[in-house]
Write a protein that binds this DNA or RNA. Structure first.
Length: 621
DNA sequence: AGAGGTCGCGCC
DNA sequence: AGGGCGCGACCTCT
């Protein structure tokens, strides 16, 4: 397989550096020892066409940051099959315990540790004048990229001739800022970037070296490939958008809230409920949107509540309860997914959230707008397939306990994880007395329940599934000691912050009193719950990434261009021509089986799916 | 006026 | 309950 490094130039345009294929022992990694076999400069206007032509060979494209570089290609109609996202992969390798001795992991923080990939910059020119922005960078950062590359890759590149540098030295022909976003130097202070191909090639070299020297190269390679494919999918989903029926959404809002009010005004239904609340609480001037005011009025009316939390109010007997709960529900709908949301996030019948790949420490995705990961069930009927199309919605049922069974190689739990309903199987095995207990118990084991029904079930679960429970317990103990834990493929947890260590220090110091000790213990347990969950949630996220990547590849070969339009932790949605839906269902199932094999080999765990073919999202269960 | 913190609730 | 999030609204502080 060939690898092509895309070096974007500051003024527009790019240089494509082709790398020699490595031997099979390197897991498909390219041979970096003699530099690129060819470097070709491409004007920005030609980039999409050139990339599209090269894509026929299905190379692995090496990009500094997919989220920046891929959308323009998509807009030009170009799709990439596979890639390596240097920024995302750097973040993983930087903290992975699997390669903690690597040059990449031990270097001082550099440009690749910033929130965005370092940009090639006119500032890198040798004759440039110093600017005030230089002062904003840490003094050591100018050496950071070089030290990250270390002697290994950096010197190889430049020892074998300055071919790449020569290309870069010629002026780009694409024209300044044409069709591209010109970085605003005032928007964000940047470290002085070295610019040129050395950054990309040296960084790639450092990454491949870290992987090759790691404890589990195969797993890390899979993780980096899955993460990078995730970046492609995220951009593609933002490009294609989720089919959204704005008229249906508006109809729904009008039905529940009344007609759309003037900006700032309460919809009619909320106004009615507010009046009811005021009467029931005998508080004529009450604004139910104010939590303190509402709490005060509730208590004055005799309700035994300490907050305005839904669950607390619901437990009370009072005429105000019903309207207050109704008000909260509807005002939430209005503020989170009302007309303002519709105006902001839905265009031309598509909802396009900004997915943030790797945005969560565990490896889950986040979103930076639109709240796509929390689409309430209430409005899912607005997610509607185009005429002639349908939605294939699939979610992995009980993913986290299944992942735990597989990663711990717990035979008894794997037995339970072989069928469609893991919780029922636990109950049938006699470990616990009901399916409900099984569910609470397992979730408690994964989340770290310390009290209540769930905690009480732990001894029985531990006896029946010693390896599975042992794995999460070990992760919890490690976290309590402040140690790092890792997912199956090698994403590692962050370390606790300074205040955590300070609390621990204070508790063991001379003047420590009981409060210091209790505080340190509490913080230790909190962090242990985090690391306990990290290993399972993070590995589940890896399974899901592999599932989606495998699905994406299968979709590519189906007719009519069925495409992913949504991904939510353990759930995917494919917008598919009606006639292809059955093939998509098959692809979704095959991809799940493939993801299981990719991560866990032939571990006897089934990753069961619930799959629905529906016209609108609310009809999928 | 704007920043930052907290609450409450939506999703997994 | 217990883990991970994003977000809007309100409130407080500066």
């Amino acid at each position: 397989m060939s690898w092509i490094v895309v070096e974007h130039l500051a003024g527009g345009g790019a240089v494509l550096h082709e790398l020699a294929p490595g031997d099979a022992a390197a897991g498909g990694a390219p041979d970096l020892s003699r530099g690129p076999t060819a470097s070709v400069q491409v004007a920005s206007d030609d980039l999409a066409a050139v990339v599209a032509a090269r894509e026929a060979d299905r190379p692995r494209w090496v990009l500094d940051e997919v989220a920046l570089r891929y959308p323009p290609l998509l807009a030009a109609g170009v799709r990439l099959d596979r890639c390596h996202d240097l920024r995302l992969c750097h973040a993983i390798l930087r903290t992975s315990a699997s390669c903690s001795d690597s040059a990449l992991a031990t270097a001082v923080p550099g440009p690749w540790d910033a929130r965005h990939a370092p940009e090639p910059d006119a500032a890198a020119e040798s004759d440039r004048q110093p600017t005030l922005f230089d002062d904003l960078a840490p003094p050591e950062s100018s050496d950071a990229a070089a030290s990250l590359g270390s002697a290994s890759s950096w010197n190889f590149w430049h020892g074998s001739g300055a071919r790449a540098s020569t290309v870069v030295a010629s002026s780009p022909s694409g024209g300044e800022g044409e069709g591209g976003v010109v970085p605003d130097p005032l928007a964000e202070p940047r470290t002085p970037a070295e610019g040129g191909p050395a950054d990309l090639l040296a960084e790639l070299g450092a990454q491949l070296e870290a992987v090759a020297g790691s404890e589990q190269p195969g797993r890390l390679r899979l993780l980096l490939a899955a993460e990078s494919t995730g970046a492609l999918v995220a951009a593609e989903m933002a490009h294609d958008g989720m089919p959204w029926d704005a008229a249906e959404h508006d109809r729904l809002l009008t039905e529940l809230l009344g007609p759309r009010p003037a900006p700032g005004a309460r919809p009619a239904r909320l106004e009615e409920l507010a009046a009811q609340i005021r009467r029931a609480l005998d508080a004529p001037a009450l604004n139910p949107d104010s939590q303190p005011d509402l709490l005060h009025a509730l208590r004055r009316a005799g309700l035994d509540v300490t907050s305005t939390r839904r669950s607390e109010i619901a437990a009370q007997q009072h005429p105000a309860v019903e309207p207050v709960l109704a008000y909260k529900k509807l005002s939430r709908l209005l503020s989170a997914n009302g007309w303002a949301w519709l105006d902001t996030w839905v265009r031309d019948g598509r909802f396009r959230p900004d997915y943030v790949v790797g945005g969560v420490v565990t490896g889950r995705w986040a979103t930076s707008g639109g709240g796509a990961l929390q689409l309430p069930a209430q409005i899912r009927s607005a997610v509607r397939a185009e005429p002639g199309w349908t939605l294939v919605v699939a979610d992995a049922s009980q993913l986290e306990p299944r992942v735990l069974a597989a990663m711990s190689a717990d035979g008894a739990m794997a037995d339970a994880a072989r069928g469609a309903d893991l919780y029922q199987a636990l109950a049938d095995a006699g470990t616990v007395s009901s399916r409900k207990e099984a569910k609470y118990g397992m979730l408690g084991a994964i989340y770290g329940a310390t009290t209540g029904v769930s905690a009480a079930l732990m001894p029985r679960l531990t006896a029946a599934y010693p390896r599975a429970i042992g794995l999460v317990e070990a992760a919890a103990r490690a976290g309590e000691r402040g140690e790092v834990v890792s997912t199956w493929l090698g994403r590692s947890s962050p370390r606790p912050g300074p205040s955590w260590w300070a609390a621990r220090e204070a508790a063991s110091g001379e003047g420590a009193d009981a409060r210091d000790v209790a505080e340190a213990r509490r913080r230790a347990r909190d962090w242990g719950r985090f690391t306990r969950n990290f290993v399972v949630q993070g590995t589940a996220a890896e399974w899901a990434l592999c599932w989606m990547a495998a699905l994406r590849r299968r979709l590519r070969d189906l007719p009519g261009r069925p495409h992913l339009v949504f991904f939510l932790h353990d759930e995917v949605m494919v917008h598919s021509p009606v006639g292809v839906a059955e093939q998509v269902v098959e692809a979704v199932r095959d991809a799940a089986a493939e993801a299981g094999r990719l991560l866990f080999g032939d571990a006897p765990v089934e990753f069961a799916l619930d799959v629905a073919v529906v016209d609108s999202y609310d009809r999928a269960t």
